[in-house]
């Protein structure tokens, strides 16, 4: 999934997968921080965005 998304042009660093048990609070915090840092680095998404039709 990740490979194909990156193949069609989603930046590496935007999509993250992790397996965290409900008992792993510290892992959750770590992963959330890493995701935040990584996504901040690639910046706001420019592609694969659906713009809703403007309604007056």
């Amino acid at each position: 999934m990740k490979n194909l998304l990156e193949h069609i042009g989603i930046e590496p660093g935007r999509l993250h997968f992790s397996w965290i048990s409900s008992a792993e609070a510290t892992k959750f915090v770590d992963v959330a921080n890493q995701v935040y840092e990584a996504v901040k680095e690639v910046g706001p998404a420019q592609v694969f965005i659906k713009r809703l039709a403007e309604v007056a």
Binding site: E6, H7, I8, G9, I10, P12, V47
Partner: peptide, 18 residues
């Protein structure tokens, strides 16, 4: 053909598929 796309920058890949 897949390899040639793999070698592109993310933005180029996106343009290719778009």
């Amino acid at each position: 053909d897949v390899e040639s796309v793999e070698g592109m920058e993310p933005r180029k890949k996106w343009e290719f598929f778009t």
